[in-house]
């Protein structure tokens, strides 16, 4: 499973989007605000889940602001930092 697909599965399953399937999440849609509608609690949950599933830490708000733009941005962030 590629990073983007895995990320979408995590969003649906771990953030409990029972009315969405991973395939319905578009790669470039904003994760927060008017896009998918995630909020600050989801952000913290995502930080935990990304570390758990990918071993990648999002260390501060600045990194998070960049990474959490969209699935594309988050996948790129993870790909750059994946452990060897």
């Amino acid at each position: 499973m590629d990073i983007k697909t895995k990320l979408k599965t995590i969003i649906v399953e771990e953030l409990n989007f029972e009315d969405l399937t991973p395939a319905e999440i578009l790669n470039d849609v904003p994760l927060f605000g008017d896009g998918l509608g995630l909020d600050s609690l989801d952000a913290v949950e995502l930080v935990v889940q990304i570390q758990k599933h990918f071993g990648v830490k999002i260390k501060n708000m600045e990194e998070g602001r960049t990474a959490f733009q969209s699935v594309n941005a988050l996948a790129a962030f993870i790909a750059e930092r994946l452990p060897e």
Partner: peptide
């Protein structure tokens, strides 16, 4: 369980809430 599996950093905020 999330803490036992992954330490403090693995604590789920959604579960906590």
């Amino acid at each position: 369980d999330t803490i036992l599996e992954a330490g403090d950093a693995g604590a789920s905020p959604t579960l906590f809430s």
